[in-house]
Design a binder for these strands. Structure first.
Lengths: 343, 343
DNA sequence: TTGTATGCGTTATCAG
DNA sequence: CTGATAACGCATACAA
């Protein structure tokens, strides 16, 4: 509470007891007489006593808060993950502090320092597409800060990770385009350094090969998710369109890229899926509203959040350091819409 | 930091000084010799000393964190407001704790208690459409917790408020439909209790009257933003469609309602704007992607957040209680798309 | 100019 | 069973 917060001391004074007795009574210690306990607990309830979490944090050297770093909360995927995290964190008495990196490695570092200085008990993070220097993260981790990665994970750090099955998701998406009769399928994806990018590329390539297509390096375009993303997408599409054998379909391998490609095609009056096929990763809820509704690969964002926080709390609350780390891989969902392609 | 966090005591020991000297040197107190200051500051930097914010909070009886309660962070409007809040809070050394009420008054109360118990220094809130009991909020406020309302404000509590000009925004939206030639314009809006609902209704009614239309009570439908919102919208639209004089246009007075109405019309293969005109409040970024792009009323969400936090920090940091409260009213933007109605 | 002592709210340790 | 005291990390009134 604020101003006149009631403390253990107030209770002690009012009841003519010592603070330690009150503290013990409140924590239901076995060494306090039932009578005293009753008295204390009743009075505490009456005056609506709430233990001061700050004092508790100072004493116990933990803050019962966990930090989350994502690039952007306005992104559906991330806000759904946060919802998942929150749904569990709250019931376990933890609060979450959200920081946005805005796809900037610099801001990410600042966020990290900020959260560390606020002594969060643990961290859940999806790194930026820019991040290449993991030293601070590693340092934090080695100093004992529990960390769980999700989505854009860092393989260089051995801890729990939660992702969706990127290879399979991308394989399915690409296969769907093939099944629809597209012959020249391009991939617009994120920065090469990212692990999930590699996986998504692998799924795309595997699907092509399995169906007798050759992988054309010119068909693979990387865009990083900077503030310039729309311009990068435009560049990528221009390059694709400029090829001798122009692609007839695009697989966009992230939420932002899907929206971006769609935006561009709309602006250029390109008909989807008649003129160009399009499929993309997306957790947005608008994809069924566009015309025709877009076929998407959807990640189980809420579950990803829940699993991430479960694993994190497990690390935080276990007495001795966790040694065997898991990488949880969840299935994505291919949501097929407007599946009939009118050629 | 975590484990081996370096404290003022460590510095003192290493330099053969007392903790108070170190503390003062770090805070650049005038009563410390330049030489000692230099020594302390250099050493502190070298070992990367970070003051423990928890200890600081306990001492200064404030947490340098502010609470935010919104119904849903996945809502573009709210995530943009949060971005605005965060942009300022971070630079002023405050962190934000976000809680979601999910349109439930019960969860809102729990959030409130949670944040109060975490001793936030201030609160920024947009209440649920369900909220009718303001007693806890009022209580908190009277105990000295600075509160700023935005969007769904509570007029019963005299403090700063930030909203957009709902009357004008709705007036403009309605007028736009009239200008497009629609004659029977329905309003789908939120719960009647909400102040912003009243304002949006007022704008809608004023526009009709000013243009020589009569306000038809049957054309006004209230839906509250519960988990059943889509069903409520369906009900509302069914009722509208069942009227003797069926409406030829709908003004949806919130983000969620706009999406919901659109979803329904799409599902029923109703052509917008040919068969039914549609205009709605929206801060989503997908409205230009639908076919044809939707005309919307957009709120200056980021600015709303920035102003809210500015006002809050002003309350928090002012020595004596603020007495003259402002209600900041910002202009909305009418973004006209697909303006030519092909009748 | 620097050091000592105290308190913020709580719990753990040690006495009684 | 209960009470006094110390400690968590920091800032500050008071002493020197």
């Amino acid at each position: 509470m604020k101003f006149e917060a009631v403390t253990i001391k107030d209770i002690a004074k009012a009841l003519g007891l010592s603070t330690s007795t009150v503290s013990r009574a409140l924590r239901d210690s076995y060494e306090i007489s039932p009578e005293t306990k009753r008295l204390v607990i009743e009075y505490a309830q009456k005056i609506n006593y709430q233990p001061n979490p700050i004092a508790l944090s100072l004493k116990e050297r933990k803050s019962r808060s966990i930090g989350i770093i994502v690039c952007e909360i306005a992104n559906s995927f991330f806000s759904q993950v946060i919802n998942g995290i929150e749904s569990i964190a709250n019931t376990r008495g933890y609060n979450i502090i959200i920081a946005q990196s805005k796809e900037s490695a610099e801001r990410e570092l600042a966020d990290l320092q900020f959260l560390a200085s606020r002594s969060v008990d643990g961290l859940i993070i999806s790194v930026t597409t820019e991040t290449t220097d993991y030293s601070f993260l590693k340092d934090l981790y080695q100093r004992g800060l529990p960390i769980v990665f999700f989505d854009r994970i860092v393989n260089e750090i051995a801890t729990h990770k939660v992702i969706s099955d990127n290879v399979k998701g991308s394989y399915d998406a690409t296969k769907h385009l093939i099944d629809q009769g597209y012959k020249n399928i391009a991939l617009v994806t994120s920065s090469e350094g990212l692990f999930i990018t590699k996986e998504r590329m692998a799924g795309y390539q595997a699907a092509l090969k399995d169906h007798g297509f050759v992988v054309n390096a010119d068909y693979i375009k990387h865009c990083n998710h900077s503030g310039m993303i729309q311009a990068e997408i435009e560049d990528a599409v221009n390059q694709l369109w400029g090829l001798r054998k122009k692609p007839d379909a695009i697989f966009a391998a992230s939420d932002k890229l899907t929206t971006g490609v769609l935006r561009l095609l709309k602006a250029r009056k390109v008909k989807v899926p008649q003129q160009v096929g399009l499929i993309g990763y997306s957790n947005a809820d608008y994809t069924e509203l566009i015309d025709p509704p877009l076929t998407i690969v959807k990640q189980p964002a809420f579950e990803i959040g829940q699993i991430a926080i479960e694993l994190l709390l497990q690390m935080i609350e276990s007495k001795r350091p966790v040694t065997d780390f898991e990488t949880r891989v969840l299935n994505t969902e291919l949501i097929i819409r407007a599946s009939t392609r009118s050629k």
